[in-house]
Design a protein around this nucleic acid. Sequence first.
DNA 1: TACCTTAACGGCTCGCACCT
DNA 2: AGGTGCGAGCCGTTAAGGTA
Length: 325
Amino acid sequence: MKTDAAWHHGQTLAAGQVAEFKVWAELVRQSIGGLHVFLPLRDMGIDGVVHRLSDGDYLPVQVKGRTSLTPAGQVHITVTASSIHDDQTLMVCVLVDGEQLGAMILVVPEAKFRELAAHDVVEGREYLTAAFQLHAGGRSRWAPYLVPREGLAERFGGAAALAPPKDEVLQVDRGLEGFLGESEVIRRLAESSSLNLFRPFPDLETVEVLARHVGTRGFIGLQVKTSGWERADVENRVYVRRSSFRARPTTYVCVLSWDRGAMRFGEDCLLIPSLDISALARVEGEWLVLELQPGSAHHRRLDRYRSPIATLGRTVEALLTAVAG
DNA sequence: TACCTTAACGGCTCGCACCT
DNA sequence: AGGTGCGAGCCGTTAAGGTA
């Protein structure tokens, strides 16, 4: 039964957004925390990035939605060949039928899509078309890539069984200074045109800003900590919750210093690889504690991670170029 | 604002496999 | 041989977005 939701021209953009959010919502619901979704802050060709917590992988995703079937009962997905440039990106093609996603969803890497699709050239432009029926057990070349709606998270390797234990799903309350810090980091990174930025959705990630290099396609996740201070000689502490902290080669902790008197950020931040954290931090119950003096020129054991905030974008770019692959 | 390019929709046609 | 259903291919139309 379809609720006659005729999204016709003029609403196609909205329909595309609806398709995307329905996909994200399914992934979050089905994985119960095993998959997190990052959304782009600016559209640079990827609709979202799925973070698989079990192994830390980031999977770029492109969602294609259709709101109707052809008379023959097929879903047709046509894209221009020029819009496919990243073989690893997973295409998720769905039918949006009223409130629901279609019963079957096509999940296929872009490389495979290009290989399997019908290629045709119209006035010099190459189009790629996939046409398939929305039911299991078909015999088309697309059949191996069709998954039932309820199996979507599993297809991403994030079935509920792989989800982290409940107590690792934390609530996040970053407060005003934390919010300022994240915004500052995003602003600095946004100055680098080769970085594509993403924020977690919903907001329960320890990685708060995800940057992807458009050239190397590598990812770096930043956990942003803001250390506010009033007197330069006072020691300050940054707390990282142990249960939710996952050290990964692609994850960095970025500590900003916030001068409460002057209402501005210090010129330097600390950019610390998460793999180094356990050696630097003191364990205090549930927490990893970093000690620093945000108002001074000296950061105790952390000095070597000092990095000018003005060039944070270039610094992250350099990291992503170095770890290419 | 006008013009151009791209994305998306969806109707129409074709061919093959399988059944009667 | 003819009918039928499904998978596939072709391309016109429309809207949106970009650019001069």
